[in-house]
Design a protein around this nucleic acid. Structure first.
Lengths: 153, 153
DNA sequence: TCACCAGCTCAACCACAGTTGAGGTCAAAT
DNA sequence: ATTTGACCTCAACTGTGGTTGAGCTGGTGA
């Protein structure tokens, strides 16, 4: 086992550094989230700044951000160099907004559920929990509850 | 179109009353969440109180409660009669707790992310986002250089 | 009687985020 | 020279929550 030049990492080294299993790295590459070159013997060689991309994927995983969103983010990121501090701020603010949105959805559901605990009618016609759209439409403007598709369907 | 006796609903009536497609009802039955009897001609006949169970499933869906949890809840519910108000309170309080838990997780992630926005290191060894419960100890061999943000290599 | 609708079963398929295993290749160590 | 160990590709499978379609039967109205 020899040390690769600082800028060219084998997949084994990437695994050691990121903790990601090879299968996941292969998967991300198939999805176009990360890239590599190949040696003559068809082994992957990763640029060192791929580690940053993988870090971002790991963070996104922790935040339950779907890979499709990560792909969007990566589309605006340079492929040839490490993202700048500014890049990271843009990404992290974007993801923070998504967390906020998710929290608001949950808070609103908590609110509804609290109101329904004492009721328990579960009437198909009258229950707010069962008929969310009527509620929203009838209430006019205000804090709008957005059904977000990304969360545990 | 004939009215069924109040206590015996065809699947079509259940669909009309709950808005659930037949495929979903079949699916829930396969999963053991709802039951039915069969006519001589192999058609499903649902008891009227199955509507309540289906309502609970619909609520769980809105709350992103997995069906496995719904199954647990149903295990403690009577199969032969409509759940009481007390039953509903038990369920709704349980689900409310789960929402609270989800909210707290999100809040904590928001907190972390806020702290990381200004940092942006994403260091495999030091970053809290990347190492949720790791006290950054024992760097291995070789320095993992933290890329100076904003300084192009 | 014949069409037609309601309902049935069963198999296959969707997205998501990967994992697992088979079978092959490449490179280094003994 | 051979045996590891690292790596490769490709296909199939996991679990969740269903949907879609094919092909069949049951009951009813004209």
């Amino acid at each position: 086992m020899h040390a690769s030049p600082d800028d060219h990492l084998t997949i084994g080294e990437v695994i050691r550094r990121t903790g990601m299993p090879a299968s996941a790295l292969h998967f991300y590459e198939r999805k176009g989230l990360i890239f590599s070159e190949s040696t003559s013997g068809n082994q992957r060689i990763f640029s060192r700044h791929m580690l940053r991309r993988i870090s971002l994927i790991i963070v996104a995983k922790r935040l339950s951000i779907p890979l499709s969103d990560v792909a969007e983010v990566f589309a605006d990121l340079p492929t040839d160099r490490v993202p700048t501090h500014k890049d990271w701020q843009r990404v992290s603010r974007r993801w923070k907004k998504q967390l906020e949105e998710r929290r608001r959805v949950i808070e609103s559901l908590e609110h509804e559920l609290t109101g329904c605990i004492g009721c328990g009618c579960l009437s198909m016609k009258a229950c707010l929990l069962l008929n969310p759209d009527d509620t929203l439409q009838g209430r006019g403007p205000g804090p709008v509850r957005i059904q977000q598709p990304g969360v545990a369907p």
